[in-house]
Design a protein around this nucleic acid. Structure first.
Lengths: 133, 133
DNA sequence: TTTCTTGCAAAACATTTGCAAATCG
DNA sequence: CGATTTGCAAATGTTTTGCAAGAAA
C-alpha cells in the first residue's frame, strides 16, 4: 500500500532521530536534534518526512497532551501513559479484554478498527518526591 | 475547588450552546452557533469561557482527532468512538475491567488517575452505505 | 524529460495574551 | 474602589502549502 517514494537522506536522518529517541519527540524536538547532528532541514521537509514515515508505517504519530504531535518508532500495538507531574510518557503493553471491546462494539454499533488509549497518573519517580504542586 | 468567578451572561450562553449540542462542538462551532443566537463574543472571550467552564467541571474538553479541541457537556465518566468514514463522534459508557487497569498500574508503576480512550471504527450508518472511499 | 523531493517563505489555523474599557460587588 | 471580565487585536505555536530549484529514474 505504500512505496510512493524513497527513503531519502533527510527521511532516513529523521527516522533515525525518532528511532533513537527514548522519549516521544515532537517535530520541534526532531529539528533540534537534527541540529545536534549537523543537519538543518527546512520545517516543511521535516513535517513532510514525518508524514511520509508515518504513511509507510515506520513510525506512529501520537496526539497526546499539548498542541504538538509526538512521534514514536515503536509501531507495535501499544498504548501510552503520561505523568501529570513531570510530563513523561511511557508505553503500556497490557491489552484490554477482548469481551470488553466486543461489548463496546455491540453498544455502539460500530466496528472497531483501532484503539487509542491515554492513561494519566503519577509516575514512580514523582510518587517518591512529595507533591510538587 | 472552584468558585473563582461567576457565571456571566457570556459564560452562560456558551455553556448553553455546548449543553444543547448533540455533537461535540469545537470553539469555532460554538462561535458560529452563538452567531445564530444573536451573540457576537470575542474569540478570547469564548476560549476564556470554555476554559472557565471546564475548570468548573461544567463541561469537558476533548482532544480527539484534528487540531481543534472539542467540548462535551456530558461530564460523567465516559469515553468516545469516532467514525473513520463520516467523522461522527459517539459516547461509550462501557467501563473497562478493574483488574486490567490494576495490571497497567502494576506494569508501569504509575498511579492511574484518569483514562482517555478513543476508539476508531465505522458507525452503523456508514456500514450500510458501501465504501465511500 | 518526467516525477518526486527539498528549501524557503508565506499562509492557515487554533489558541493565548496584553491592555484598556466595562462591569460587578 | 478593587477585582474580575470583556473586546479587540496582536502575538504565538504548530502545521500546511505554493512554487521555484534540485535530484533521481
Amino acid at each position: 500500500m505504500a512505496k510512493k517514494g524513497m527513503l531519502t537522506l533527510q527521511r532516513k536522518a529523521i527516522f533515525d532521530i525518532v528511532s533513537d529517541a527514548s522519549d516521544h519527540p515532537t517535530a520541534a524536538d526532531v529539528i533540534e536534534r537534527l541540529k545536534d547532528r549537523g543537519y538543518h532541514f527546512a520545517y516543511g521537509t521535516v513535517y513532510n518526512s514525518l508524514r511520509y514515515l508515518a504513511d509507510e508505517g515506520m513510525i506512529r504519530e501520537l496526539r497526546l497532551e499539548g498542541d504538538a504531535s509526538r512521534y514514536d518508532a515503536r509501531v507495535e500495538e501499544h498504548q501510552h501513559i503520561i505523568c501529570v507531574s513531570c510530563g513523561k510518557v511511557d508505553e503500556v503493553f497490557v491489552e484490554p479484554a477482548a469481551d470488553w471491546v466486543a461489548d463496546i462494539a455491540k453498544e455502539t454499533g460500530y466496528t472497531i478498527e483501532e484503539k487509542q488509549f491515554l492513561f494519566k497518573g503519577v509516575c514512580k519517580a514523582c510518587q517518591g518526591s512529595k507533591r510538587l504542586s
